Simulated scan of single mutants.
Amino acid sequence: MAEDLQIVKGNKAEQYTSLLPQIKGLLEGETDLVANMANVAAALKEQFGWLWVGFYLVKEDELVLGPFQGPVACTRIRKNRGVCGSSWAQARTLIVPDVEAFPGHIACSSLSKSEIVVPIIRNGEVTAILDVDSEHLAHFDVTDQQYLEEIVALIV
């Protein structure tokens, strides 16, 4: 298990490339889902300094707030509601350059300007989602999608 996170400067791909083996080290041998989500959220927040990084877990047909880093958040989100609920319903990553332009956006924080939501799919079902918010417009792109999808695939 890694004890210290090495923060790397550089372009986005270089940062993810450095972070990915460190996340693998954090998760290695740990089977507790909450512990793994907590460490992934912390590692991503430390590396990128995003406004909010966290997980929602599918429980009783709702998304329920899980481990996160950042300001307080919405506790429960229904399917098809906002970016998170839409990603869950569609079982695909959503990149939203301007959350104000997203129909039905749920404003948990007025500071959030753009968002990426990545579903965690196990046995063909979405079991959780990774939600990342930025205070900058159009902050996320296909590079984020590629690496964040790779990262969530590591979570047990």
Rank of each mutant, 00 (worst) to 15 (best):
E62D: 12
G49E: 02
K59N: 12
K59A: 14
K45F: 08
M37T: 10
E62T: 12
F55M: 08
W50I: 03
K45D: 11
E60G: 11
V64Y: 15
A38K: 15
L57K: 12
G49K: 02
Y56I: 01
N39Y: 13
V58K: 06
L44F: 03
V53Q: 02
A42W: 10
F48L: 10
L51V: 02
N39F: 14
L63Q: 08
F55I: 05
V53P: 00
F55K: 06
L57V: 00
F48K: 07
L33D: 08
Y56Q: 08
V34I: 14
V40G: 03
L57P: 05
N36L: 12
K45Y: 07
V58N: 07
K45N: 15
D61L: 07
L51T: 08
F48R: 06
E46L: 09
A38R: 15
E46D: 12
Q47V: 05
N39I: 09
K59V: 11
E62K: 14
V64K: 14
V64D: 09
V53Y: 01
N36C: 15
K59R: 13
E46R: 09
V64M: 12
V34K: 15
V64Q: 13
M37N: 07
A35N: 13
W50C: 03
Q47K: 07
D61K: 10
K45E: 13
A43W: 11
L44R: 03
F55V: 07
F48W: 05
G49N: 03
W50K: 09
V58D: 08
W50S: 09
L44Q: 00
L44C: 08
K59C: 02
A38Y: 00
Y56F: 10
G54K: 05
M37H: 07
A43Y: 10
G54V: 04
F48E: 11
G54E: 05
N39V: 10
A43L: 04
Q47E: 14
E62P: 04
A42M: 10
A42C: 10
L63E: 05
N39R: 13
G49R: 02
E62S: 09
